[in-house]
Design a protein around this nucleic acid. Structure first.
Lengths: 208, 208
DNA sequence: GAAATAAGTCTACAGCCGTAGAATTGCAAG
DNA sequence: CTTGCAATTCTACGGCTGTAGACTTATTTC
């Protein structure tokens, strides 16, 4: 022994337990939302009892806040790389549509919010993180007029697609060829990425 | 007496009670979603006890189904009139944005689904009605290629805007000038209403 | 080995949930 | 007025919720 003891060696491994709870909680919140996921269920998924959740995070609400913050801090769609790609609109469209791929983190965040629609508290927590992470990244990459509104609308499209496909399960979208959706979505996003707020061109859009 | 007795006069007015429960239920589901709205709360809003809900509708789930069907059967945005207006895109955009106006019915439906995201059963019930009402109306009005996908995407945009504005409360959208949102949304919807699935004009097939 | 402390579990509490069956009320017809 | 039935309420069940305090267990330090 004495091999590892970073910052005082853990007895029954508090760090690992905490991480396990976070992981289980994320899965549970993605699946059932804030109200739907039970503390006992989350704890069981981490191999501990319900009280550990309160012991490590104080309350279910604080655990939720940490899960949301962590999930949205690792974006995979709205990244600076994607936003500076040659064909931004198509790249974003593909990220929104390809739910199976490695776009899981960003979509997990939207999914949690979609499943947590009933809770005002969850909405507030999610709003703060969306604005801090996704919205910020997006708005920073845009140029021209009405940047905030355009960024908000792009996020709305991502959220709406997620809701109708994964949540509601609208068949015309679940059964659609992903490539068709990407092709249809690309010009839509293009209209918001560029500054074409109809006719008031003021200056030539240099952006994207 | 004998003044009114349509289909055998009601003693303590079963019809009125039933209608009162439906009305209260709709308000409750809009506010709290399927899981969040309690049977006792719904009943209290109608001035009766919880058991009347089961007596008149069999179960909470059946009540929900009836509320959703009724709400979505009275659309105010996706109407045939709006879909044959001269400037369809702007008319739809305005309907999606002006939440205060008389677009309440259509938006109520989306709001119920947004708040009920945690329940798979509610999603299934909502999906059926959305496809039957909104989707059908919309798809019938479109022409060209990929009508079903385009209709689904338009519904996604409506749902996403609703979620981000009313649900999550994204500030860039809640504080935005509605006219700006309409102006930005119009070309976006235009891209989906027209058949501009990028460059493959192949042949003009009448859709679906 | 004994003491100290961190990690984890047990038990319990109010309070809510949807719903079932029995009992009760109110109205209208005989 | 009485009888009959529809409309409504009462009581209750089993199960779930988040969380608080006391208790137990394991690990480390002296």
């Amino acid at each position: 022994m004495a091999a590892e003891r970073e910052t005082t060696a853990r007895r029954r491994n508090a760090e690992a337990t905490r991480a396990a709870i976070l992981k289980s909680a994320r899965a549970a919140f993605v699946k059932s939302g804030y109200d739907g996921a039970g503390v006992r269920e989350i704890a069981a998924g981490a191999g501990v009892t319900a009280m550990m959740v309160n012991r490590y995070f104080g309350s279910k609400e604080k655990l939720f806040a940490e899960v949301v913050a962590q999930t949205m801090a690792e974006p995979t769609i709205l990244t600076r790389e994607n936003l500076s790609a040659p064909d931004v609109a198509r790249t974003l469209a593909r990220g929104m549509v390809e739910v199976t791929g490695r776009a899981a983190a960003t979509l997990d965040g939207f999914q949690i919010m979609q499943k947590s629609g009933a809770s005002a508290r969850a909405a507030e927590i999610g709003r703060a993180q969306i604005e801090k992470q996704h919205f910020r990244t997006l708005a920073d990459a845009l140029t021209g007029e009405h940047v905030a509104e355009r960024a908000g609308l792009i996020l709305s499209i991502a959220a709406g697609l997620q809701q109708m496909r994964q949540g509601v399960g609208l068949r015309s979208l679940t059964r659609a060829d992903p490539e068709v959706l990407v092709a249809l979505l690309t010009p839509v996003l293009q209209a918001l990425l560029e500054d074409n707020s109809e006719r008031k061109q003021g200056g030539r859009r240099r952006g994207m």
